[in-house]
């Protein structure tokens, strides 16, 4: 790791930006529009969190690649991201205002008819996905549940306790899905403030199962408050064969449901512009995004900060979102039951 001081870091960063911006200025004719403009990337959550770090990483490298004068990050937290997303939906589609969107959460809110949704996820101008990690299921460290059969055995004795944050949160949706597919006497316990608190409870042995993102589960495994057992999807993660897809263990009739959920979750954290962005600007943004996110500097920083990226092109994200928007009835019912109507 580098031992540079904060001053030299700032200095080198600004030099790098200067060099990069002069280099990229003559690169793209389609991107001439962005030259010397200020692009704003809205983050729908508070500064200092995990989501924020991704946004700042992208902005730092994408701004110079675009040739923009600057790409600034603006945090606009509120209503679990709905507030910012509602506003981005109505912004002028000139490409100068972008947002990092927690796609699955917004998609679920829209399809589940959650109150407060004023957008159609499908119609945003998708620029590209930064990261997308699957949902996994964890049990308490040293717990006895290894397979769905174990869970069912436990369910025969007493209700299996599945932890979750409040209704309508992403964790609640996956908890509901889990409750559905393990087909046993189970109980979703809501009211935790966030994944760390659920994991603390799991670590105390108060809960039996919890479904969270893979990275949260990894952190909990290192903190010995949880033990990852299943993947809440159909295909194992590359390099993690020990986490078995739950689809192998449950009744085949649930496969479409699990698939629908997994693909909605796969849309991950993606950048979007307001709907109706002109073709050429969207193309420019997509090209620049793809270039940024595959650039060695960006990847080096993502590795250094332990923030793995899973890039996906804007067109592919749009396909994923469209596919999920046409989800079948069972999944829609699950979503609707996950929001207070």
């Amino acid at each position: 790791m580098s031992r540079t001081s904060i001053f030299s870091r700032l200095l080198s960063a600004s030099i790098a930006i200067m060099i990069a911006s002069s280099a990229s200025a003559q690169m793209d004719k389609t991107c001439a529009f962005f030259e010397n403009e200020t692009v704003e990337l809205v983050i729908p959550f508070s500064a200092g969190g995990g989501f924020d770090v991704y946004g700042r990483m992208v902005a730092k490298y994408m701004g110079p690649q675009l040739g923009a004068a600057s790409m600034i990050v603006r945090n606009q937290p509120g209503a679990g991201g709905l507030l910012a997303t509602n506003q981005t939906w109505t912004e002028k589609p000139d490409g100068l205002k972008l947002q990092l969107i927690a796609v699955s959460g917004m998609l679920a809110a829209e399809l589940g008819d959650a109150p407060g949704v004023r957008f159609k996820t499908n119609e945003f101008s998708w620029v590209g996905r930064v990261s997308g990690e699957p949902d996994v299921v964890a049990t308490n460290p040293g717990g006895t549940i290894k397979t769905v059969d174990d869970a069912q055995k436990l369910g025969a004795e007493r209700a299996v306790r599945i932890g979750s944050t409040g209704l309508g949160s992403p964790q609640y949706i996956s908890a509901k899905l889990l409750e559905t597919v393990i087909e046993t006497n189970a109980n979703v316990i809501t009211g935790f403030s966030g994944s760390p608190e659920v994991y603390a409870s799991l670590g105390r042995g108060e809960l039996d199962l919890f479904s969270s993102s893979l990275s949260a589960a990894d952190a909990a495994e290192k903190a010995q408050t949880g033990q990852t057992i299943w993947l809440l999807g159909t295909e194992a993660v590359a390099g993690r064969p020990e986490i078995r897809p739950i689809s192998e263990m449950v009744d085949a009739k649930f496969l479409p449901l699990i698939k629908a959920h997994a693909s909605a979750v796969a849309a991950g954290r993606a950048i979007a512009a307001p709907p109706g962005l002109s073709e050429d600007r969207l193309k420019c943004l997509r090209d620049v995004f793809d270039r940024t996110i595959s650039s060695p500097e960006f990847l080096a920083e993502s590795r250094q900060l332990n923030r793995p990226v899973e890039p996906l092109s804007g067109a592919a994200v749009a396909d994923l979102v469209r596919g999920a928007s046409e989800a079948q009835k069972e999944y829609l019912d699950l979503l609707r039951s996950s929001f207070a109507q």
């Binding site: 508070s46 200092g48 969190g49 995990g50 770090v53 760390p196 608190e197 994991y199 603390a200 670590g203 952190a219 909990a220 290192k222 903190a223 010995q224 408050t225 900060l305 332990n306 923030r307």
Partner: peptide, 30 residues
Amino acid sequence: PMIAIGLPGSVSTAILLNAFLISGLNPGPE
């Protein structure tokens, strides 16, 4: 609690927790 089990108790410890993860440290027994 942040160091022991990765559970932040306030906004500022939540940011510190993030700093942990970014700098490659894992709260917990480690």
